[in-house]
Amino acid sequence: MALKASDLSIGDTYTETLVENLSRTQIVQYAGASGDYNPLHTDEIFTTKVAGYPTVFAHGMLTMGMTGRMVTNYVGDGRLTKYGVRFTSQVWPGDTLSSTATVEDLSDGIVRLNLQTTNQEGTVVLSGYAEARVD
């Protein structure tokens, strides 16, 4: 269901849990679906011994994809006009992510949302914006 402008106020928020205890297998699933097989995301030996990270980590685009799920659940199907993010911290296997959209502006039938996704420690892993048509 699409949002109605008359039901929205600046500062309204909508929150979803994106994932609990992110599995390595979900990261593998994302690699397969997206076609991004960077070993940093799925290959523990390469990532620790060659790239120098403590373990594999999620594609930024997996976090953006899951955050996008929160956004489309809020604004409705086919309503997005813009969606952009900055990846501010890495997401690791075992992480639990929560994402919140906050209504920032509402004009000319478009709602602008501020987006923030955080991990279980409260670290912001993604920040961004979305714009969507509202009724």
Binding site: F46, A51, G52, M61, K82, V85, R86, F87
Partner: peptide, 23 residues
């Protein structure tokens, strides 16, 4: 050298923006 500095595999993704003209 597979790493080529930090990140290996061609660096990291910093930002992504989409503008939808239709879905």
């Amino acid at each position: 050298s597979g790493g080529g500095g930090g990140g290996g595999g061609g660096g990291l993704h910093a930002e992504q923006h989409f503008e939808y003209h239709r879905h």
